[in-house]
Design a protein around this nucleic acid. Sequence first.
RNA 1: GCGCACGUGGCGUAAUUGGUAGCCGCGCCAGACUUAGGAUCUGGUCCGUGAGGGUGGGGGUUCGAGUCCCUUCGUGCGUACCA
Length: 1002
Amino acid sequence: MEYNFKEIESNWQAYWAKHKTFAAKDGGDKPKYYVLDMFPYPSGAGLHVGHPLGYIASDIVARYKRHKGFNVLHPMGYDSFGLPAEQYAIQTGQHPKITTENNIAVYRRQLDKIGFSFDWDREVRTSNPEYYKWTQWIFIQLFNSWYNKSSDKAETISTLISEFETNGNSKVNAACEESVQSFTAAQWKAFTEKEQSDILMAYRIAYLGEAYVNWCPQLGTVLANDEVKDGVSERGGYPVERKLMKQWSMRINAYAQRLLDGLDTLDWTDSLKEAQRNWIGKSEGTSLRFKVIRHPELVSGSQEMLKQVQHDIEVFTTRPDTIFGVSFLTIAPEHELVESLTTAENKAAVEAYVTQAKNRSERERQADVTKITGVFTGSYVEHPFTGKQIPVWIGDYVLAGYGTGAVMAVPAHDSRDYSFAKHFGLPIIEVVKGGDLEKESYDAKEGILINSDFLNGLQVKDAMKLAMQEIEIQRLGKKKLNFRLRDAVFGRQRYWGEPIPVYYKNDIPYVLAENELPLVLPEVDKYLPTEDGEPPLARASSSWKYKGEFDYEHSTMPGWAGSSWYFLRYMDPHNGSVFADKKLTDYWQQVDLYIGGSEHATGHLLYVRFWTKFLKDLGYIDIDEPAKKLINQGMIQGLSSKAFRVSFGVSHTSIADSPDSKKELLPVKEIPPVFVSKSLFDSFNKEEWTADRQMAIDKISEIGNIITKQLQALHPDKVGKLSFNESIFQINVDVNLVSKGNILNVESFKNWREEYKSAHFLLEENGDYICGTEVEKMSKSKYNVVTPDDIAEKFGSDTLRLYEMFLGPLEQSKPWNTNGITGVHGFLKKLWKLFYGTGTFAVSDDEPTKGELKTLHKTIKKITEDIERFSFNTSISNFMICVNELTDAKCNKRAVLEPLLICLSPYAPHIAEELWKQLGHAESISTAPFPDFNEAYLVDDSVNYPVSFNGKVKFTLELAATLTAPEVEAIVMANEQTSKFLDGKQPKKVIVVHKKIVNMVV
RNA sequence: GCGCACGUGGCGUAAUUGGUAGCCGCGCCAGACUUAGGAUCUGGUCCGUGAGGGUGGGGGUUCGAGUCCCUUCGUGCGUACCA
């Protein structure tokens, strides 16, 4: 019987589904193991071969752990809220729910075909109201919490309110808005409800706050920092600008230190942890206040009044040691003191500058970081130690959102201040020796302090300490930690997301009660903002109001909301009374292995850690981190095929033809497309002139002439001829039209597009049309998408699974290329043959030979080690070696083949199940215990010793394994080959590494 | 600029702690069986006729380096005025 993968695979997929083979049990004697894939957004394009890479790896681990006696949780679901479905809805009017459901159906069909061992009874969809009820519930907990820095965790807001009622806020040590004023208990009680609400808002972890946000006009929504790449939106690539808006946000900044510390406990890749560390961006420094010296003309009052209105500019610096090098202050254009610092004569210039700086899009700002702009305010501050007057400038190199939005500029020792100072001719004061300030600033943190009063002569490190001390003693400022990590904007002005469970009464936001959840997404007539710029939810019917009266929040939650806790829901996916039963979260604990793309490094993976810590603070779960071990699978890029299209124009052939003759030229539109094969393109594409290049041009011109004649025959009244524009465009060709060796199927290509029907081709000498290739992202628009379905159709899913793993290390990115797939497929056929060697199923019950047992146990050992270190590509080669050896030995013995099948079943489950059944087993192979490997079978009687001279191996000696090192040395020294290579000399030293190698120093 | 990976045959890759570099697969070459093959099977395949050379280049540590250290070049990814 032939290896009929199609039948085998569909049979077993049906069997698994019917018997719920992979359903996880909540509890039991077995140890638990939780393997999770980052769940997909179900896009309209379906899965391509890159998507399953990580799923295959995690499935191998899941199946392996089941064999090893673990109770495995291996779920899958969909991150089903998101922009593409909504964009599609805007274009077509189709409800995103329908689009999403259709896409999910396609995904599911594709996933099932690959034979994953998911427990589908636990599937979650973030857009399902039963799911997002709990996303909303978590939001409410975040709203009803504040971050107590003293206990270093989130606490319920009621503890804060009772503190306000007894002591006011003077003793409160919270992560909150800087702008909060202090008040007493009496004052608190006297505040109106609105005032109290506003104050509490400054403390809540989910809060409504005014902040500069990334506004994307084309998408009509704000975006989080991690959704913006290079100043444009990550999805769609639309420009993003900064805008001051009132927005729901998450006080993730409160967790910055814990998010940083937690990294040390995680078994994640260094690059991923490093990316998070950079994103969190901790820096230790000091805050420092500079007294503003009021310009007399600013104040229309007496000197007395002048003193009263004085205020300070607070800066943040990590280099307090360079305090004597400050020659100016720079504040951000958005700084709150801009207006009050600006003198009358500078007013016009400052206003113009600020307006211009604010209107610049994020992209423009990033694009010309080298362009230095700024303006003088006219005001001065006093140097805290020298008392000298220091000018205050405005510059957009200072970011409003970081530190205090103001810096003390030390041009001698900070490259940005240096460029600014050079550009505006401001003084540069050297305070640390070691650099050449004519050329550049000296930013290094080493050297001796000069020009620095009490710091003179000190090393930078010591100067930092002393300066810091002095600043604190004189109460000019204090030590401060700063994090680059900004609070995360949580509102999106979009339709297809979780409604934020908030309503407004008298302009005060209130959250819904738990029993009022879920707040279901209302129907709208259009998925666009309203005329006055309100989000789409404002289009909901007038009955969509809280208690029929109060407006709901019109923003929805961002994409990362649902994915920030889904790993918990899988533990208890159908619970209607709690997001997940504590007993179950305690049982399943952390994800043991999490696999997904590295693009989530600073988004999802940071937010999910944040929510996990938050839920722990409130006592809902007992774990601090969502995933113990994480692997980033590499991206599979597409291999695009390119055809080379010649560009022709039409020109006049003679003076008689010239424009004055008023004869019409041949129509450019009717020129048939002309494609040249790769070698011609390559010849043409050479930088310098070569004979080859000229030949290519001649050939192209020649075909131009032929086409000219054809066109002239069609249009006898018109004049002109085709001329080669000396340019050839590369166009993407559907990879399905190209066969091995990049040969284009010309006939299919002509039928591909109406416009190519009449195409001309300049072929290779052998008559083929050869395409070019390029590695690009796999995408519909590049016609380079290869779906897993294509591969499964041709070779079967087991081959697909093995081949994706065989491609190379999991973490590595690589282009998709089916060159080696026949080898992997051949391996499965060879395996099949071990059982069906004679044409019918035949397995012997004979005792295996020593050699066969060695092959088997060597394989068990290697496979076990490979899986434990997630090295799947090497396991495939080890299986191949094993099957090759067994084939050579003509081994069809049950005692060898049975354990081998179990080892293979995580990788190629369908064929393993089928052969397992043929061997007479009634139960699925999936829980058969993984074979133990026995060292005894691997022990060799002899060792092949390489004998080397000065590290170069000259010959090998087969010696008994029982020999000791000195015995080996004696035998080697007595060997005639040794004396030949020694050539009569005495070796200086002989090294014998037992059972490894012999080396002689001559 | 900064951070993190990574450079090995024609190609994808292997070599867990320093111990015979090139396993496995593709491709290629030769042969067998076939009307035929993008089927199957067998043998060969780092370069060099050979001594020998060889893991991007240079240097070092070591009896011994693809592996460790320094330096340099190149590629990929992330990030970017974070004071």
